[in-house]
Design a protein around this nucleic acid. Structure first.
Length: 423
RNA sequence: GUGGGCGUAGCUCAGCUGGAAGAGCACAAGAUUGUGGAUCUUGGGGUCGCGGGAUCAAAACCCGUCGCCCACCCCA
């Protein structure tokens, strides 16, 4: 097993057999978001390094130690995108998309890159599905984003999506909030772990992510309600969510690692994921566009980790392979006559136009072999055509699951198979 | 960057206090040229992660090294 080339750590091949789940999820996403008025946007994988520093934040881990950055031949500093929100903002500002529309609803889907140490649920190349609601202020937009996330997760088959939310405060009061929290944790410093001491210096909010046992009491009794009580707006938001029957919990220690968030933030979590339990995360960001040189533009959005969602769905996905399997038929010509092969070519074309995968083993005329192969390829229906069938102008269709077979007139073969496969 | 676990066939792994590299699954051919999954027969596949050391003898013991996984940090 001496191998010359291997994929880089944390960059995985998605092989046939697994790729079908990805295709399925991508298709679900497109159907779901497009039918709700979102339009896809695709941006380059490479962007100016500065774009991410300005948007995500110079001091965040993502920017200062997890970006793939390098210079191209012209000495331009570029980075592989670690997330999509900044790229979308750049494109919207650069192309002036808000000049011909008051607001935008965009979705995206694709690979992101972060040079972290790989682990369960954390790859260096990973994939996200996300949406951005651009230039949409107001509680209604916040509620809608959360509802879209909740509905989409249900739509893909997550049994009970759990949404957690928090209010990080707005641009005006956030510095003071950080200051007050720093003040509090500084008083309790002796009870905190070394990592938290570091966080205290760097980014107080991160202390809330600490999992060390001894830090928990201090975190629990953080004076959120004094320094930043949940306001009337947040109260209204929760009422609206209740009204729409979206289950959620308020988690005051929920903070996010990207600096551009302010206001309402949320995550969807699943216990089945292990240490990295967030399936999706998002929230409101009202300052980003101004920061990047555009007009001040209130926005909200989220992104979903595709790998993580697929992990959550793993159990529920079993019927999926079944569904894919059903859209296939196998053609078994029983001799090499031109007449039979001609009919099969024509029928294969018809079936394929109907979106039915049609396969055969070329140059093989032994029925036993055909059946074996169909079985091996996990195809349920075998269409058999030989001299006997030609005489009657019919085709014998064998159902390998039910061990039945029946004859269908050649003229209605394709339409009948379409009906059979639909159920 | 810091811990812990694991590296033997394509996959899952067994291999005892050192004594001729194995099983199951998968793959290929046949028994079987108009009725498949089973069974049987046969076959291809290995620098036992890599390098060194002690030994008559190492997959096993010692040292080093590389890789992967999990966890911390952080996030999707």
């Amino acid at each position: 097993m001496r191998q010359k080339f291997t994929a880089f750590p944390g960059m995985e091949d998605i092989l046939p057999g697994e790729v079908e789940r990805w295709q399925w999820l991508e298709q679900r996403a497109r159907i779901f978001f497009e039918s709700r008025g979102f339009r896809e946007i695709r941006t380059p994988l490479l962007e100016p390094a500065e774009l991410f520093a300005r948007s995500i934040g110079e001091a965040t881990d993502i920017v200062h130690k997890e970006m793939y950055s390098f210079e191209d031949r012209g000495g331009r500093k570029m980075s592989l995108r670690p997330e999509m929100t900044a790229s979308v903002a750049r494109a919207v500002i650069e192309k002036g998309l808000l000049k011909t529309a008051k607001s935008l609803r965009l979705y995206y889907l694709g690979p992101m890159f972060r040079a972290e140490r790989p682990q369960a649920g954390r790859k260096r190349q990973f994939h996200q599905i996300g949406i951005e609601m651009i230039n949409e202020a107001g509680l209604e937009a916040d509620v809608e984003v959360i509802r879209l996330l909740y509905d989409f997760l249900k739509y893909t088959g997550v049994a009970e999506p759990l949404v957690q939310l928090n209010d990080l405060g707005n641009a005006q009061n956030r510095p003071k909030l950080a200051e007050d929290l720093r003040h509090y944790f500084d008083r309790e410093k002796s009870k905190l772990c070394p990592d938290c001491h570091w966080r205290l210096e760097k980014n107080v909010f991160r202390i809330f992510d600490c999992k060390v046992e001894s830090c928990q009491p201090v975190i629990q009794s953080a004076p959120w309600d004094e320094v930043h009580p949940l306001g009337e707006d947040f109260e209204k938001l929760t009422q609206m969510l209740n009204g729409q029957k979206i289950p959620f919990t308020v988690k005051r220690r929920l903070v996010r690692g990207l600096d551009y968030y302010d206001g309402v933030v949320f995550e969807a979590v699943s216990r089945s994921l292990g240490a990295q339990d967030a399936v999706a995360g998002g929230g409101r960001y009202n300052q980003l566009y101004a920061e990047l040189g555009g007009q001040k533009t209130p926005c909200t959005g989220f992104s979903i980790g595709m790998e993580r969602l697929l992990t959550v769905l793993e159990n529920e996905m079993e019927p999926l392979s079944e569904k894919i399997r059903k859209r296939r038929v196998y053609l078994a010509p029983l001799d090499a006559s031109d007449e039979i092969l001609d009919i099969f070519r024509k029928k294969a074309l018809e079936l394929r136009e109907l979106g039915i995968r049609t396969e055969t083993l070329p140059g093989e005329f032994s029925l036993s072999r055909h059946l074996k192969r169909a079985n091996q390829w996990n195809i349920r229906y075998v269409l058999m055509l030989g001299p006997d069938e030609i005489k009657k102008s019919k085709c014998t269709v064998k159902d390998l699951d039910e061990k039945q077979q029946f004859e269908i007139g050649l003229d209605e073969l394709s339409s009948t198979m379409e009906r059979v496969l639909r159920t």
